[in-house]
Amino acid sequence: MALSEKEVFYVADLAHLDLTEEEVKMFGPQLDAVLEYVQKLSQLDTTGVEPMAQVTHAAAENSSLRDDVSKPTFTQEEALQNAPEAGSGSFKVPQVIDRE
């Protein structure tokens, strides 16, 4: 298989990455090599094998649930301290909705 430049741009778009032309030229063949390598898995017959999403250990039912009680959490100031742009107690983002 060979990943076309168009496909690389398509995937970058899905991933919200604004790749440069040079990056696309570099990543294309590298991703291709990895995808070709992982084709190896198709040699294995996995009929009837359950997929494993997570390692799970025996535990009591609902053991990961906690009591529904409120606890102190970050102050507004703490929550906003790392924001690239904040104001009026909120995260600031570029305008999302266009005004006609």
């Binding site: 992982v38 996995t46 359950e50 997929p51 494993m52």
Partner: peptide, 13 residues
């Protein structure tokens, strides 16, 4: 890819 890999993960485990 993804589903296949999860099944192979079962075999490895």
């Amino acid at each position: 890819y993804y589903l296949k890999a999860q099944k192979v993960r079962t075999l490895i485990a």
